[in-house]
Amino acid sequence: MNNLLELNHVSKRFGGLVALKEVSMHIPEQAIVGLIGPNGAGKTTLFNIITGLYRPDQGELLLRHQPLPVGMPHKIAQHGIARTFQNIRLFNNLTVLENILVGRHMRSQASVLGAILNTKRTRLEEKNIREKALFFLNYVGLTHRAHDYAKVLSYGDQRRLEIARALATEPQLLALDEPAAGMNIKERNDLALLIQQIQQDGTAVLVIEHDVKWIMSLCQHITVLNFGEVIAAGDPHAVQNHPKVIEAYLGKGQHHAA
């Protein structure tokens, strides 16, 4: 299968700290790829580079073999990569529906002039935006909360809303930063189903996660980071039994006990 996104020898340092060292990985079209690793392994840093929040010091990012602009989040989004955040970042004082309407921003054109003159084109577009937003609202099952403020939603619903907002940009790659953190088993299962649905509808998904078991069952491909380096990559089974992975998670000389 073709690769949607390719990272070649990406490095990033913060002052003296090497956060990522020559990281290479790829995300096939329409796959669910897991990115795992212990705390501080550099997962979120890598995420932030992919989504344009940080500039890499070295290395290249290719989206369908075309170089991706670095360090410009809005450009990255326009190239078809949408994301969620580890510590949920919604537009808290906007309603659930409005959050998703904002997600339609780059799929619409209305300018200031169009807006203040309320032209026919603007009205049509606005109607279209609303319909699409309602579709994504339904997609994540939040239709009944449309007019509540985002900040009053439960934790699990906030995660779903954040995913819906990202999906509303109609991305080719959806990047989820620890989407299952803090969820109970039922919520995790529901989330897994949602992610699989998203994949089936044609969007590749990159997931950061701590819970190895959960992610093993979800992903077709897994990359493991430790101390800023890729220590293993491949299908879940191969990764699970990789000695370096066991060492990273359980410590040196412990893998017999596991």
Binding site: L53, P73, I76, A77, R89, L90, N92, L94, L101, V102
Partner: peptide
Amino acid sequence: RAWMAIREDELAASCVG
């Protein structure tokens, strides 16, 4: 809406394009 998104969370706003 773009303004309000920036007001609420500039970073998240830039991440939706």
